[in-house]
Design a protein around this nucleic acid. Structure first.
Lengths: 133, 133
DNA sequence: GTGCATTGGATGCAGGTGCATGTAATGTCC
DNA sequence: GGACATTACATGCACCTGCATCCAATGCAC
């Protein structure tokens, strides 16, 4: 690791970051996809929703707007829109029109979505621990 | 930054890494593309080649095999093959069959490629410094 | 209310990526 | 030498992504 030093601190940091990111992303993608049929981005979205759902009593939310999730997972609005469409097609989330502002769309976890997230979370954590522990 | 703590060290580290990577990559892509017509991966490849070229006297190389570069920039062999095809189309690198092993392909910087890299390098460094400094 | 800008999200499109596979050149074993 | 595995790279394909754009619902002047 960090085989090639450039002699420049900033560039070296960036290369290490790139290498770490590539390694972890790649491993995560493989494991999540093989064992749970989820991509990294898909899991990330389910994860944020599950997390907030769990904290529902103390300020967490049950429903999300699309853009809100996009910020969290570093995806463009369009990518998120499609990602949510995929998750909906698989029955992991459901979309509902927000009556208060009919332009908006609420996204929420289904029971199946919560289940898949619960199953995948240990895999996710295991991969992270193996690479970043 | 790091707005949302999960209370789990490994997951928090991963999220910070994701956020940092997304921010820097996005900024780099924008700047390099707007000002020099280069993508992040394209620059990264030129950079490795220029770097080794500079160190040519002391063990650096002038010519590269495709897979060799793929490892450095965390891309699949196929992605690299196409990326090099793009760079060749733009006249930044040239490919030559390796006579010693006619399966192999040598990739080397052209003068134009060296020029573009030299122009883009300060932008690259500036963005990194701004985000990681 | 009418006109115009803005916002939230969906979609057409171009382009990049990985996987599986194809092709040609080598290597290996008998 | 001949059959088979392997290696190096290219390519077909499916899929994901961002940008630009579109559409519907709001907001804001006036």
């Amino acid at each position: 690791m960090t085989r090639h030093k450039t002699g420049n601190d900033v560039i070296d940091r960036w290369r290490e970051l790139l290498a770490l990111h590539a390694g972890v992303s790649c491993a995560l993608e493989r494991e999540l996809s093989e064992r749970h049929g989820l991509g990294v981005s898909e899991f990330e979205v389910l994860d944020r929703m599950a997390e907030n759902l769990a904290a529902c009593d103390e300020g967490g939310k049950e429903k999300f707007r699309v853009q809100e999730l996009a910020d969290e997972v570093h995806l463009s609005q369009s990518a998120l829109s499609r990602l949510i469409a995929r998750l909906e097609r698989e029955g992991l989330v459901s979309r509902a029109i927000c009556e208060a502002d009919r332009r908006g769309v609420f996204v929420m976890l289904t029971d199946e979505g919560r289940k898949r997230h619960t199953e995948a979370a240990p895999t996710h954590l295991a991969v992270l621990t193996a690479h970043l522990g």
